[in-house]
Amino acid sequence: MTVTLPWARRADHHCFGCAPGNPRGLALEFEEDGDRLRTEFTVDRHYESYPGVVHGGILALICDETMGNLVVLRLGVAALTTSMRTRYVGVVRIGTRYRCVAHAQFTEGLVRASAEVLDPDGALVGAATANYHVTRSLG
């Protein structure tokens, strides 16, 4: 079942990663998977790097969106990325369906998260880790 993000119904919601009304965005939708959050995605040629290959920055964005939204859904407040490290393990192809799964560790004053991007066979093609600063409101 698709998760509704706290700001999804706001008229000014134009997030490049997850707003369904942003014509240039990815319109990612998220589902809870136990204590994890996941999204499935297929990227078209608008986000291409080498011919037929998804630009690495787009893959990093998808990981960040999935991890950050997990933090928001668990804590009920906005989370800003303070640092992120991305590993590219395989080729992510245009027009192929992938899955990103995020997990977070919540400790006093710090949120650490990780994400994996898996191909249709479940093989790892990318991963990211990040730290998040939690803000007071969704503003």
Score class of each variant (00 low, 15 high):
A11Q: 12
A123Y: 09
L5A: 10
T42L: 12
P20V: 06
G139K: 12
F41W: 00
T4S: 14
L5R: 06
R9T: 14
A123Q: 15
A8T: 13
H55E: 11
Y47S: 10
T66C: 08
H46A: 15
P23Q: 11
E116C: 12
T82D: 03
M84Y: 05
C63M: 13
V54P: 05
S137R: 05
A60Y: 11
I62E: 07
G52M: 00
R10A: 04
L118Y: 04
N131Q: 14
S49I: 06
A130E: 09
A11M: 09
N131L: 11
N69Y: 15
V71S: 03
R38M: 05
H133C: 11
N131M: 11
C18G: 11
L26K: 01
E48M: 05
L28F: 06
T81H: 10
W7D: 07
A128N: 06
D121K: 08
F30L: 05
M1F: 14
V89M: 14
A123N: 15
M1A: 15
T135G: 09
F41H: 01
L73F: 01
D121V: 08
T39K: 03
L70D: 00
S137K: 05
S49D: 14
E40M: 09
S114T: 13
L37H: 01
L138P: 11
F41D: 04
G17S: 07
W7G: 02
L118G: 05
V91M: 13
L70K: 00
L73H: 08
G90V: 12
E108K: 07
I58H: 03
W7C: 10
V54E: 06
E116G: 12
V71P: 02
W7Q: 08
A115G: 09
V71C: 07
R87V: 13
E29D: 13
R74S: 04
L73K: 10
D12E: 14
V54C: 12
A128T: 01
V111G: 01
G126I: 00
Y98V: 00
N22F: 01
P6C: 14
G52W: 02
V125M: 13
T96H: 06
Y50S: 13
R38Q: 08
Y50T: 08
A128L: 04
L138T: 08
R10Q: 14
A60Q: 14
P51W: 00
M67S: 11
G139P: 12
G109D: 08
I58M: 07
V92K: 00
L26W: 00
